[in-house]
Amino acid sequence: MEYLIVSTLPPQHEGAAELIGQLAETLPQAEVVYTQQMKISACLGCNSCWLKTPGRCPIHDDYEPLMLKFLQAKAVVFVCDTKLGFLSYQAKNLFDRILPLATMYLTIVDGQMRHIPRYHKNLAAAVLYTGQSDNAYLNRWLARAMLNLHGVSLGAYPFEEKGAALDALAHC
């Protein structure tokens, strides 16, 4: 698997189904995961993944196998809807739960504090979304999120701009 496509929208979602079909056709060795039927809880902010069981989340649900796929993929594409001008909570939970990939230890990069990554893995992520949202803000947020994970943002795109997303994914 080179590309991991993670959809919080169900397979029968019309717009997502068409988009994911095109992504899977175009991107080599793409694997698609639908999270709607999976049990993925919100991060509890308990710090266990940093201090008690380093690298492992104490919530035993369907997230850990997904996180392991993040470590194997060249790039991860999140397909989701937006609510209240931001990612839906289901999509945000996927990002919040990623903290086991960082350590508690800190470093300074460009004058700002960062967590030291747990693995030598350059995470690359793109977000493809449907619904009303401020694209500039979503790009700002994703860039910031990936920066703190020592990864790379491939951008946030509304479904209508899938061509630009595919271009970024193909060249990552």
Binding site: N47, P54, T103
Partner: peptide
Amino acid sequence: FRKIAKEKMHSTEPLDAKPFLQVVK
């Protein structure tokens, strides 16, 4: 941080442990 882990979380595991290193590509 190791002191906090030991005293507050009762853990002595290395905080930079890599439990899934074998799957990283």
